[in-house]
Nucleic acid binder design. Sequence first.
DNA 1: CTGTTAGCGCATTCAA
DNA 2: TTGAATGCGCTAACAG
Lengths: 343, 343
Amino acid sequence: MARKSRRSLALPESAALPVTVTDVAKQAGVSPITVSRALHRPELVSKATRERVLEVVRRMDYRPNLLAGSLATSRSHLVAILLPTIANSIYANVVHTAIDRLTEAGYQSLIGPTGYSAEEETLLEAILGRRPDGIILTGTLHTPACRDRLANAGVPVVEAWDLSDHPLDIQVGFSHEAVGKQVAEHFLAKGCLRQAIVSVDDPRARRRNQGLKQALLDAGAPQMPEVILPLPSTWEVGRRGLATLLNTDPAPPDLVFCSSDTVALGVIAEASSRGLRVPQDLRVLGFGDTQNGRFAWPALSTVSVNSPAMGEQVALALLRRFAQQPTENRVDTGFELIERAST
Amino acid sequence: MARKSRRSLALPESAALPVTVTDVAKQAGVSPITVSRALHRPELVSKATRERVLEVVRRMDYRPNLLAGSLATSRSHLVAILLPTIANSIYANVVHTAIDRLTEAGYQSLIGPTGYSAEEETLLEAILGRRPDGIILTGTLHTPACRDRLANAGVPVVEAWDLSDHPLDIQVGFSHEAVGKQVAEHFLAKGCLRQAIVSVDDPRARRRNQGLKQALLDAGAPQMPEVILPLPSTWEVGRRGLATLLNTDPAPPDLVFCSSDTVALGVIAEASSRGLRVPQDLRVLGFGDTQNGRFAWPALSTVSVNSPAMGEQVALALLRRFAQQPTENRVDTGFELIERAST
DNA sequence: CTGTTAGCGCATTCAA
DNA sequence: TTGAATGCGCTAACAG
């Protein structure tokens, strides 16, 4: 009893046609909608029919087609996550936590790599075409057009990892300027007057650096060289960065503020290969949460940003929106300076 | 001229109803299918109407609903990627490369976290319910039921990071036993007879370890202690691992084979805090490609698995399947032992 | 080259 | 408690 026009090719019988609600309905002697209800709103169906239907569902190995469901309900249960890169990413922990929470709540995650500004618009359209129920933004969108597009997509958007003055919608993050400021002040108080910077070229890193430099300026501390190298963020950036610093300035820095823990490790490697002791001769400060707070590299101080908490907040904000509950539109997840001596 | 029953709520006019093919068709004075063709198969439409339609598309800001398209064509242009974790993951580089290629080819990536065996089945159903055109598996599926389900889902599946004797479908990876064997033999030849292991508890790591131990056995080298610690793979595993090794055995190892570069760094940290020189007193061997081959930690030897190439092959295999071109069902991407002395 | 018809699989609305 | 009719938005098949 073949259906009217499913597939033109003759298929081997192993590739059976997918079972649909209609198939189940026929077998169970009910209408398709009853099957749907038995599955999703069982309280609307009498116990007898419900059990019969579910039995048939099991027997026929019925798997709902979520595409069809989404089309009919206009709720895709899809969350799009836009991030520059998955590999070695400072955002990975946040994204990971958020995905876990969303998955638990029955949402699935669509990943969009925003690494290449050229195709950003295309990517965004492809993503929006799936009609996601929500969007998570970790990196920065390159073109203003894309930001506009997102703002007007009629979809809740969470921007993570930052608090800016021009929110798209919801923000979960912290102030990068404040990070730089606090680092500078903390170490000024400890007597570190020669604070240098080794950083990749990233907008947020630049704002942290700016915060640090401003604080130094305000305190009347000397301006030290700042080495900015291109992405990606590798150990090599740190090694070359410190090498450059030391070659440039006759008087070495007493602190190096790095754009990430990875870069900081490179600085430590370079320092030790030059016989500089960390932190006695040179303090090295990283940023991020590579090890997720579990364990830090000896002598590597760092600014921990509490990624898991951020991930939770990101997911929470979206889920509350979905449930049409009131939401905070701005969550400051803070950061914490962790100092390590050695061993 | 409102449509019949779209949305019940009165919406502010800013939240305009999404434009559909039908809307465009009306404005352009053609039928919906012509709009569809002008967009997707322009060669089937006369230049004049095509231009008119596209003009209207632009003016009305039409955005195709990919859910509807997928439902109609049975091609979702979605690839599901199942991986244990995104954070600090050894798989991240592979996944990243694969996503890039797939995105370029017009496919989008759905991420499914398989970290929690308990809900593995639920997750899998949710993913399959989206009718992905292909599936990428990086970690291991925990239950046999899930493997069966995948094998019979009627969807191309690529298993990455491994070559086993019981492929689900396509395999792209390398032999983990061979890694262990080659490491053992290489360093035996260099005179390292006391090869110990510090590893997390992971099936594939265990197979690498097994390969190493077997090769040692075959060569008549002494069996050294093997420290297996629970996931996740952090520096701390390395530190505690080496500490345990040194406390357990009076005669220290001359080589420590680690389950990842991260663990290996921990071993190096512990070694240096104990005054052991790497590699003179102790060679440390990592595994993976944390830095993607760009730069290695001084004195950290490693087994590089060429993740980008693997990612390419994974994407390629799927794309060829989608295009119904013949495919290799088993691609050995190999690995490479990289030895580093210092500095 | 263009349009008509019909269907993808499911769920909302209303009626019974 | 159940069902019929209909629509979600798009496209394949066929006709003209």
